[in-house]
């Protein structure tokens, strides 16, 4: 099952949307935000409100004089250039929202999974190095090893569902976990759970075996 408008219960936080609207969110987190925004008009409207603050700030704070020839130079750039073509509608027909399939290079069947133990698989996506984005495949009924965070973690469900100490998360839902949250997501029985997770520092596993594995598997 994929997300449909109106079934999403867990949204992006104000802090995340504000940082995305300000352009200060690391790329991996921005990828989660753009993926959720593709499915959620409520968050899209909230983002628009924050961007309106950015626009108002632009008009109210300062000016820097442009060079004498700058207008002429810009006119020379645009003169005779046709407008950009209307963008092809970017709407996903598959399971992955388009911003995400752009990073994967296709839909779910194009994901190059690597095992990380316990039936759990992952694919690390290439983003700027301030934070890491990865797709996770959790078999039905299985758990991701219990972990705490050195920093922030955003997790968005793409298909299936998981539950943890906080709540149940279904398609389109985003869980925002800060360093104080210790959780163990467990995929619901019946179907595997595929999600997108972004972290801004290495996850810390609680028991010693995964902690040894942590640096090796890069989770």
């Amino acid at each position: 099952m994929t997300a449909t408008m109106g079934t999403i219960r867990h949204h992006l936080t104000d802090e995340t949307l504000l940082a995305y609207s300000a352009g200060t969110l690391p790329e991996a987190f921005a990828l989660v935000a753009a993926s959720h925004l593709s499915l959620c008009d409520e968050c899209r409207a909230r983002l628009g409100a924050f961007e309106a603050v950015g626009g108002a700030t632009l008009t109210s704070v300062g000016t820097a004089e442009m060079g004498d020839a700058s207008l002429e130079r810009t006119l020379a750039m645009i003169r005779g250039t046709p407008g950009d073509p209307d963008p092809a509608p970017r709407r996903s027909a598959g399971t992955l929202p388009i911003p995400l399939s752009d990073y994967v290079g296709g839909d779910v069947d194009a994901i190059r999974w690597r095992p990380v133990g316990g039936g759990v698989r992952q694919m690390v996506l290439k983003t700027g190095d301030e934070a890491t984005a990865r797709l996770l495949y959790i078999p039905a009924g299985e758990a991701v090893p219990e972990h705490t965070h050195g920093g922030m973690e955003l997790t968005m469900v793409l298909s299936g569902a998981f539950s943890d100490e906080v709540d149940r998360f279904g398609p389109g839902d985003v869980e925002t976990a800060d360093p104080t949250i210790q959780h163990q997501p467990i995929a619901e029985p019946g179907a595997p759970c595929i999600c997108l997770a972004a972290t801004d520092s290495r996850l810390r596993f609680r028991s010693w075996i995964p902690r040894l594995l942590g640096p090796i598997i890069g989770i």
């Binding site: 300000a22 961007e51 950015g54 626009g55 911003p99 700027g128």
Partner: peptide
């Protein structure tokens, strides 16, 4: 959006490209 807001988003995206040297994932249109 207002015109100022629209211009702000174009300038912000340019800043991410040029100054932060990152891609900006954009939602579906």
């Amino acid at each position: 959006a207002s015109v100022a807001t629209w211009i702000y988003t174009i300038a912000r995206n340019r800043r991410i490209d040029v100054l932060r040297r990152q891609r900006r994932p954009e939602p579906e249109d």
